[in-house]
C-alpha cells in the first residue's frame, strides 16, 4: 500500500513536470539547424507558443518561475542578451493569464488569432527594446520572417500540446 502511494506520487510528479519538459524540448528543437533552402535561417519561437498555450489552459502547470527558467535557457542557447527571452516570456505569460477569462471556451481560430496578435505586439516591443540596447535601428526583415514562421507553426505545436494536455488531465 505504502509502495503504491509512492508510485502514485511519482506518477503525479511526472504529470506535473510534463508541460515543463515539453516546453524545454521545444526550446531545444527550435535550435536544431533545419537546413532549409533559405538565405537566412530563422528559428521559430516555439517556446512562445508553449507559454501561451499553458498560460491559457493551465497556468498552474508552468508557474512564473518555470517560465523565467525557460526564458533563460532560450537566451543561453540562442545567444541573445541574457534575460531578454526571460523577460519577453514572462510578459506574455502575465498577459495571457490575466486574459484567460476572455479566451475561455473560444474556438481554435480565436486562440490562433490571439496568439498572432499577441506575438506581433511582443515582436514590436522586442524590436524596440533590442534597438535601444544596441543603440541603432535594427532591420525588421528577419524578425518578420520569424514572426510569420512562428504564427504558421502555431496550429501544429498547439495540436501536440492539446494531446498532451488531454492525456495529463484524463489520467490524473
Amino acid at each position: 500500500m505504502k509502495d503504491e502511494g509512492g508510485w502514485t506520487r511519482l506518477d503525479l510528479l511526472a504529470r506535473r513536470l510534463t508541460p515543463f519538459l515539453i516546453t524545454i524540448t521545444l526550446v531545444i528543437i527550435a535550435q536544431v539547424p533545419m537546413h532549409l533552402p533559405a538565405t537566412i535561417s530563422i528559428a521559430p519561437a516555439l517556446a512562445l507558443i508553449a507559454v501561451y498555450f499553458w498560460g491559457l489552459h493551465q497556468p498552474d502547470l508552468i508557474p512564473a518561475p518555470v517560465v523565467f527558467l525557460v526564458g533563460l535557457l532560450q537566451d543561453i542557447l540562442t545567444g541573445v542578451p541574457f534575460g531578454l527571452n526571460a523577460f519577453i516570456l514572462l510578459i506574455v505569460y502575465g498577459i495571457v493569464v490575466s486574459q484567460r477569462r476572455f479566451f475561455f471556451g473560444k474556438s481554435f481560430a480565436v486562440l490562433w488569432w490571439g496568439f498572432a496578435t499577441l506575438s506581433f505586439v511582443i515582436g514590436v516591443v522586442q524590436w524596440a527594446a533590442m534597438s535601444m540596447l544596441m543603440g541603432q535601428f535594427l532591420s525588421v526583415g528577419p524578425l518578420l520572417v520569424e514572426y510569420l514562421a512562428t504564427a504558421a507553426l502555431y496550429p501544429l505545436v498547439a495540436y501536440i500540446l492539446v494531446l498532451t494536455h488531454r492525456n495529463i488531465l484524463n489520467e490524473a
Partner: peptide, 15 residues
C-alpha cells in the same frame, strides 16, 4: 559540426 543555429531575429550565431 554545426549543432545549433540560433537563427534569431537579433543574433546571428552558430553553436
Amino acid at each position: 559540426r554545426v549543432i545549433g543555429d540560433s537563427g534569431g531575429a537579433f543574433v546571428r550565431s552558430l553553436l
